[in-house]
Amino acid sequence: MFKIAVLISGGGSNLQAIMDSIEDKYLNCSIEFVISDREGAFGIERAKSHNIKSFVLDRKSYGNTLSDRILEIIDGRVDLIVLAGYLSILNGNILERFKNRIINIHPSLIPAFCGKGMYGIKVHEKALEYGVKVAGCTVHFVDEGTDTGSIVIQKSVKVEDDDTPETLQKRVLVEEHKALVEAIKLISEEKIVLQGRKICSII
């Protein structure tokens, strides 16, 4: 069984999409741990309702040691780390120990509207300010940079003339749920190959 840890910071709708896909037998995976960097994240309640081991490691308390504490919990126990709306930046040994085994979902078509300070509704505000006609989301591997790792999957949505950041965010989130689950499936079934920074799917 392919084992994953899911890191969250908020409501956990992407976590829910993963749990639903496991229950529907689309993913042959198990979620071993759910870890939040914020107190009160509803995603922890979702995890508890499925009897998944959960940890709250408040980033204000752990500071620069947060990534090391996460590594202590999951090292040797999971095959993949999934950042599902996780807002802290991973650093240190965890990046080397899980090289090409950490993925993140970002609410834009990278390399647009990504990097430092680009998260949540801010991404959609910037996209609309710029006047893009197409928005979307990206699943990518996590490296030492911010949103700079190799791209696994991207999905797009048409930007409507009357879109607000909130309406655009909702439509992109639907695609996030699909993209993240598809990426986990490809990785768990060993159906992707890295060629430099380019990823090829083996179907």
Rank of each mutant, 00 (worst) to 15 (best):
H124G: 11
F33Y: 15
V152E: 04
V139E: 05
S67T: 00
E45D: 14
G76K: 08
L87G: 09
I89G: 06
A127V: 15
I81T: 06
G131K: 10
L173Q: 08
I153M: 01
Q16D: 09
L90A: 06
E39M: 11
A5S: 10
N91R: 12
I74Y: 02
V172F: 09
G40L: 04
S156A: 13
Y26A: 09
C114K: 02
T138M: 07
H140I: 11
F141M: 08
K48E: 15
V134T: 13
I202R: 15
E23R: 14
S188H: 07
V123P: 00
R59Y: 14
N100W: 03
K3H: 06
M1P: 01
M19G: 03
L109V: 04
C29K: 01
G85F: 04
R171G: 03
R101E: 11
G120N: 09
E189S: 04
L57E: 07
I70Q: 04
H124V: 11
R38C: 15
N93F: 12
C29V: 14
P165T: 09
N91I: 05
V78W: 07
M19C: 05
S201M: 13
P165K: 08
G10V: 15
D20T: 14
C114R: 02
G145Y: 11
D79T: 08
G43N: 03
E160C: 00
L109Q: 08
V172M: 06
H124A: 09
I81W: 02
I31P: 02
E166T: 11
L95T: 01
G136P: 09
I52P: 00
A112D: 08
I199G: 07
A179K: 00
K198P: 01
E125L: 04
V123D: 04
P111C: 07
I18A: 01
V78T: 14
F42H: 01
K158G: 07
I4V: 10
F98I: 00
D143V: 12
K198M: 13
I121P: 08
F42V: 12
T65P: 00
I184T: 01
M19L: 07
G40A: 04
K25N: 15
V152P: 03
Q16F: 11
E160Y: 11
S201E: 13
H177Q: 12
V159G: 02
I121A: 10
V152W: 03
I187Y: 06
K53R: 13
L80Q: 10
K133R: 15
V152R: 01
R69F: 11
G145E: 14
A17E: 07
S108F: 03
V139Y: 06
Q16N: 09
G145Q: 02
A183I: 04
I89T: 09
S201L: 10
K191E: 02
D24C: 12
F2S: 07
Q195W: 01
E23I: 02
S21A: 15
N93R: 11
A5Y: 06
D58N: 14
H140V: 09
I105V: 13
L80P: 05
D24A: 13
F33A: 08
K133G: 01
V139Q: 04
C114P: 06
I199V: 15
I35E: 02
I110K: 02
D163E: 05
F98T: 00
G131I: 13
Y86F: 15
